[in-house]
Design a protein around this nucleic acid. Structure first.
Lengths: 342, 342
DNA sequence: TTGTAAGCGTTATCAG
DNA sequence: CTGATAACGCTTACAA
């Protein structure tokens, strides 16, 4: 058995509760005994037992993370390393740890969340994504358990603290950017419509198109998985259109990479024959050839702020609901140009 | 307060200990009471409290993860998303959760580990990397705390369970591959020599060079950070050599991407003017232009097996030390060719 | 300022 | 097969 508070108490000739107070840095304890106790802790190499503390205080200093299905390819997106970094730094500031379970199916994931929550393993939960109809969000809301979502909640936006980009605006921005370059045939290549982020970006795209008085072409809107193959399929379909687009708004960098490759194989030059602008600006955006013009959504901050606000919520349950919008900016690189008018 | 074992006991008209037995699926309990208790649990929506259970049973069903510094760029490598996926799937099979703390400095990380371990937060620990002199490994060893490392321990290899690739062999393989293609001037671009993986790969490279009767040129060995800028620096130095290399062994895909870009800027063609082979085969290896010839080290398996073997170690402390070698294979794509003899 | 003692929700050891 | 009861290591009234 490890050394406990009692051992320390015995050595320091005080009561266990006194030791506990010293640990908690209780102000009403004499400097003398404080020193005495600390010395005893040092001598014995004492370390507080988190589990016992959690049980007694009903708080774990741990944040639960809900990731997408581990079977899901989005899991592979560098996006996640980066949010994770943000999350953990944000948590670390307040000495919170991260706790995660995963699963392959939605069912498994849901069970994992239930166990974390009802099992008292965590003080709060962060959802790393926002789906259109999410059992988990409803569950958490019903139980009134502290949670924040990264992304925009589909329902009850006003009642759920969340950290998000203005994806509608970002998509509108990029589309207008393309229009300003002279494009009129702009396609949208997005991920699953089950993800709120896709919906938002699509809406922003449509809005920009409409406002510019351009006709919305249904065939210009395609949805594919975020990664790899996805991009390829999408692009071939688009190119086989009678009047193929001259520019693409692509919902994710990795997908844009795929597009870039397909284009390359087909023999179309970017940006000469096709302009591409994508989202997220993950590390590889600048390493692609040509480097991607992409919307930096400040992924790290997304994570960092999510942790921060969850902790606030945990430590002050009356904390008002918040919506934190992380700014975005277009990072111009080399995949956009004026259309090649034929 | 949530519903506890006592509430269930009361409703089912049994003792709390009986309920506990039902949960543990204790064989010597009558089917009848088992059913009765389960019904009561269902009615009350009972969920066992993990914390209490952990305290009583001195086991948490959680695995601690030790990540590299969150400030470190390697953290950004897609490598981590993938090990994480492997780790979590491996853990999930046995219903273990993952627990992580991070820090920016080695000091902070070490503290985090101490807290996890001595605080009883986790039953075992997995190190996601292996450094040359690692306080954490010594610490864990001294305390005789179950842990496994992903990568090769620098010291006490025989006494530490680890999951690794045969990086020496892999590096030798790729170098020989290059030699067989006709290259004689082969450079090695590696990450920090503090990482055991770099050392191993360098050694394998050297071995192949020597065995082929080629002179080892000191200037052909450069070390840079794994990511981005790293590659650029390295490559410029190499090209300014009197007799520049015709092929590169690059220790990481992302770094190879950087190299590819620099080469592109300089106006050298790959693989015509320079062959490149790299390691890890992360998702972007196949998406780069040209697609990277890379060594697939089966990152997912690395993580999966690490979880598996740690759990074995936890559940059976007498489990013998294991070394698990995950196979690797060269994935030929388009960055290697015979040298352009001038 | 410090000590006593009652929890926190389980598991585990004895009896019976 | 089941019930008391004592841990597990800490926090927190309540007393002193």
């Amino acid at each position: 058995m490890a050394v406990t508070i009692k051992d320390v108490a015995k050595l320091a000739n005080v009561a266990p509760s006194t030791v506990s107070r010293v640990i908690a840095n209780n102000p009403r304890i004499s400097e003398k005994t404080k020193k005495k106790v600390k010395e005893a802790m040092r001598q014995l190499g004492y370390h507080p037992n988190f589990i016992a503390r959690s049980l007694a205080s009903q708080s774990t200093q741990a944040i639960g993370l809900v990731m997408p299905s581990s079977a899901d390819i989005v899991f592979q997106n560098p996006f996640f390393s980066t949010v994770l970094r943000g999350l953990s730094e944000g948590a670390h500031v307040k000495h919170y740890a991260l706790h995660m379970t995963t699963g392959k199916t939605d069912e498994e994931i849901f069970d994992g969340v239930m166990q974390m929550v009802q099992g008292g393993r965590v003080d709060g939960v962060i959802l790393l994504y926002s789906k259109v109809e999410d059992k988990i969000q409803s569950y958490l809301r019903e139980r009134n358990f502290p949670f924040v979502v990264i992304g925009k909640p589909f329902k009850n936006v006003e009642e759920i603290t969340h950290v998000d980009n203005d994806n509608f605006r970002a998509a509108k921005d990029v589309t207008e950017y393309l229009i300003k370059l002279g494009h009129q045939q702009i396609a949208f290549v997005g991920g699953s419509l089950n993800m709120v982020v896709t919906v938002e970006r699509l809406l922003g795209y449509e809005k920009a198109i409409r406002e510019a008085g351009i006709n919305l072409v249904n065939e210009y809107i395609v949805h594919e998985q975020f990664l790899r193959e996805g991009g390829q399929e999408a692009i071939r379909g688009l190119l086989s259109l009678e009047r193929p687009p001259t520019a693409l708004v692509v919902s994710d960098d990795l997908m844009a990479l795929g597009v870039l490759n397909t284009l390359n194989e087909i023999g179309l030059a970017v940006p000469e024959d096709m302009s591409i602008i994508s989202f997220n600006n993950v590390i590889i955006a600048e390493m692609s050839r040509p480097p991607l013009t992409s919307v930096d959504i400040n992924i790290f901050d997304l994570g960092f702020e999510a942790s921060r606000s969850l902790i606030q919520l945990i430590e002050n349950p009356k904390e008002p609901v918040k919506r934190i919008i992380i700014p975005h900016q277009i990072v111009e690189r080399s995949t956009c140009a004026a259309p090649n008018l034929r």
